Computed example of a mutant assay.
Amino acid sequence: MNAESKALGESTLPPSDDPPPSLAPFGQSEALTIGVELELQLVNTNDYDLAHYADDMLRLMARRDLPGSVVPEMTAGMIEISTDVCRTADEALGQLTRIRDALVHSADTLNIAVVGGGTHPFQQWHQQRIYDKPRFHQLSQLYGYLSQQFTIFGQHVHVGCPDADTALYTLHCMSRYIPHFIALAASSPYVQGQDTAFDSARLNSVFAFPLSGRAPCVLTWDDFGRYFDKMTHTGVVKSMKDFYWDIRPKPEYGTIEVRVFDTPLTVERAAALAGYVQSLAAWFQNERPFAPIEDDYLVYAYNRFQACRFGLDAVYVDPVTGRHLPLREHLLETMERLRPFAEGCQAGGALAALRQEVLDNRNDARWLRERQGREQLLGEVIRQAALRFRGA
Rank of each mutant, 00 (worst) to 15 (best):
M1S: 09
A3E: 04
S5W: 00
L8P: 01
P14M: 10
P15L: 09
P20Y: 01
A24R: 09
P25I: 00
A31V: 07
L32I: 05
L32C: 11
T33M: 08
E39D: 07
V43F: 07
V43S: 04
N44W: 08
A54Q: 06
A62M: 13
R63P: 03
G68K: 10
P72S: 08
M74Y: 11
M74T: 13
T75K: 10
T75S: 10
G77L: 13
E80N: 09
T83I: 12
R87F: 12
A89L: 08
E91Y: 11
G94C: 09
R100E: 05
D101Y: 05
A102K: 11
A102G: 06
L103V: 11
A107N: 04
N111V: 01
N111I: 01
V115P: 02
T119S: 14
F122S: 12
H126R: 15
Q128S: 13
I130D: 08
D132V: 04
R135W: 01
F136Y: 15
Q141N: 10
F153Y: 13
F153D: 02
T166N: 03
Y177D: 02
P179R: 00
H180E: 01
A185V: 03
P189K: 00
G193T: 02
T196H: 07
D199T: 10
S200K: 02
L203E: 06
N204E: 11
F207N: 09
L219D: 05
D222N: 08
R226M: 12
R226D: 13
K230L: 14
T234Q: 14
M240F: 06
K241L: 12
W245P: 06
D246W: 07
K250S: 12
E252T: 14
F261A: 02
P264Q: 01
L265H: 08
L265E: 03
L265S: 03
A272P: 02
A272I: 04
A274R: 00
G275Q: 09
G275M: 04
V277R: 01
L280V: 00
A281F: 00
A281V: 04
W283H: 13
F284M: 07
Q285K: 06
D295C: 02
Y297D: 10
L298V: 13
A301L: 12
C308P: 03
R309S: 03
V315L: 15
D318H: 11
V320E: 15
V320Y: 12
T321N: 09
L325S: 11
L327D: 08
R328F: 04
R328P: 03
L331Q: 14
T334G: 15
E336M: 12
L338P: 13
F341P: 08
E343F: 05
Q346F: 09
A347E: 04
G349S: 13
L354E: 10
D360T: 05
N361G: 05
N363S: 08
A365I: 06
R366S: 12
L368M: 14
R369F: 06
R371I: 02
E375P: 06
L378K: 03
L378I: 09
V381E: 08
R383N: 13
G391Q: 10
A392F: 10
